[in-house]
C-alpha cells in the first residue's frame, strides 16, 4: 500500500458516499445514469469474485464487500425507492457497445486463459468505460447538480490517483500490471473534459453548465 493508492481508494469511497447522500437528501436520482450504476455492480461482482479464493488483507476484504454492497444498494435506491425520479428517456446509451467489446478484449488480452482471470480482465476493461452512459447523459442535458459533479470528480480522481501508484510500484516493488495501467489511463482520459469544466466552473462557485 502507498499513499497514492490509499488516497485513490478513499476518493472512491467518498464518491459513493456523496452519491448516496445526493440521492437521499434530494430524494431523487435525477441526473444519475442507472446504466452506469448497473455497470459498476457488474464490474465489482466480476472482479471481487476472488473474495472466495484469494486473501489479500483485511483492508482489501472489507473494501470489496463495501463496493459490492453499496453499488447494489444504489441500484435498489434507483430501481425501487426513488424509481419515479429516474427518467430512462435521457439514459439511452447502448451498454451493449461497452459490454460486448469488454468481453471480446478480455478473451484476447489477458494474463491467463482461465475463467476467473478473464472475469478480472473483463471487469478492468468494463470499468474503464462504465462512466460513459453517465457522461453521455450529462452531455445530453448540458447541466448537472453541483453535488452530482462532486460525485463525478471524486470518482474520476480515484483512477487518476492510481496512476502515480503504478509508477511508484514500478520503482519500489518492480510490479507492473499493463492491463490495469492501459485501462486506467483510458478511464482517467474519459474524465478530462469533465475535469476541465469542474475546475473552471464548479470550483469557482458557478453551476455546471456545458456551452450550448
Amino acid at each position: 500500500m502507498n499513499l497514492f493508492r490509499l488516497l485513490g481508494d478513499l476518493s472512491h469511497l467518498a464518491s459513493i458516499f456523496i452519491l448516496i447522500h445526493k440521492i437521499q437528501t434530494t430524494r431523487s436520482c435525477r441526473g444519475i445514469s442507472f446504466q452506469t450504476q448497473a455497470l459498476y455492480v457488474t464490474v465489482f461482482v466480476a472482479r471481487y469474485i476472488d473474495l472466495f479464493f484469494r486473501w489479500i488483507s483485511l483492508y482489501n476484504f472489507f473494501m470489496k464487500i463495501f463496493f459490492i454492497a453499496s453499488s447494489v444498494y444504489i441500484l435498489y435506491l434507483m430501481k425501487y425507492r426513488y424509481r419515479p425520479t429516474h427518467d430512462p428517456s435521457i439514459d439511452t446509451f447502448k451498454v451493449e457497445y461497452l459490454v460486448g467489446p469488454a468481453v471480446v478484449l478480455s478473451l484476447i488480452f489477458n494474463y491467463k486463459f482461465e475463467f476467473t482471470e478473464i472475469l478480472w480482465t473483463f471487469s478492468i476493461y468494463l470499468e474503464a468505460v462504465a462512466i460513459l452512459p453517465q457522461l453521455f447523459m450529462l452531455q445530453r442535458t448540458g447541466e448537472a447538480e453541483t453535488i452530482t459533479t462532486h460525485y463525478l470528480a471524486a470518482l474520476g480522481a480515484y483512477r487518476a490517483l492510481y496512476i502515480p501508484n503504478w509508477i511508484y510500484r514500478y520503482f519500489t516493488e518492480d510490479v507492473v500490471d499493463p492491463i490495469a495501467i492501459v485501462a486506467g489511463l483510458v478511464q482517467t482520459g474519459l474524465y478530462l473534459d469533465f475535469f476541465y469544466v469542474y475546475f473552471t466552473k464548479v470550483l469557482q462557485g458557478q453551476k455546471f453548465e456545458l456551452p450550448a
Binding site: R5, H12, R54, Y111, W120, N165, V176
Partner: peptide, 10 residues
C-alpha cells in the same frame, strides 16, 4: 521476466 500481477489492488 516478471511474474504476472497478483491482483492485490481494488
Amino acid at each position: 521476466h516478471r511474474p504476472p500481477p497478483k491482483h492485490d489492488e481494488l
